[in-house]
């Protein structure tokens, strides 16, 4: 194990070697025996671990009892609770990292989903307009030709 790798593992897992990946522990112990620099880094990491592992002040007995009582007092009744159980499927599903600035969805919002469909929308609109115009013109042509046919027939029989 190189000193750089040792420092990287200290940064990742802290100075408690029992929490390191099993395969790296023996090499770490060996390096600690051989390298004064590694021992110094290890001592620094141990001191920093103790800072990170500082305990939060515990609740006083009175505050804890009041909080527990308050939670029990606010439990929904069984009917409400059953509705809540049906609705509350998200409470234990892991939260995914938020879309960060720069990601396509965060930057463009819903438009990034709509944009690929713009061509389809325009195509449908154009087709609808053409269909409408076509039907209108077709109707007009039929009307005119029927009228002209009727006039032609009357003329033919000398009735006009």
């Amino acid at each position: 194990m190189t000193p750089e790798e040792f420092r990287a593992l200290l940064d990742t897992y802290g100075a408690d070697l029992t929490r390191w990946p099993h395969a790296r522990r023996q090499a770490a112990h060996k390096l600690l025996q051989d390298s004064g620099r590694a021992r110094s880094d290890f001592a620094d990491a141990q001191a920093f671990d103790s800072v990170l592992m500082q305990s939060e002040p515990t609740l006083s007995d009175t505050r804890r009892k009041n909080l527990v009582d308050s939670i029990l007092d606010h439990l929904p009744d069984e009917v409400m609770s059953r509705q809540g159980r049906d609705m509350d499927v998200k409470s234990s599903a892991p939260r995914q990292p938020r879309a960060t600035r720069g990601s396509p969805v965060a930057e463009a919002g819903i438009s990034v989903l709509v944009r690929p469909l713009v061509g389809l929308w325009v195509g449908c609109l154009a087709f609808g307009i053409l269909l409408g115009v076509g039907l209108y013109l077709g109707h007009q042509t039929l009307h005119v030709s029927a009228e002209s046919d009727w006039v032609g027939t009357l003329t033919l029989f000398g009735m006009n």
């Binding site: 909080l67 308050s70 939670i71 606010h74 439990l75 929904p76 609770s81 809540g84 159980r85 509350d88 499927v89 409470s91 234990s92």
Partner: peptide, 15 residues
């Protein structure tokens, strides 16, 4: 913490 335990109660069937 209060909300968490109320959720635990209402979502208890999910565990």
């Amino acid at each position: 913490a209060q909300d968490v335990f109320l959720k635990v109660w209402t979502a208890r069937d999910q565990w």
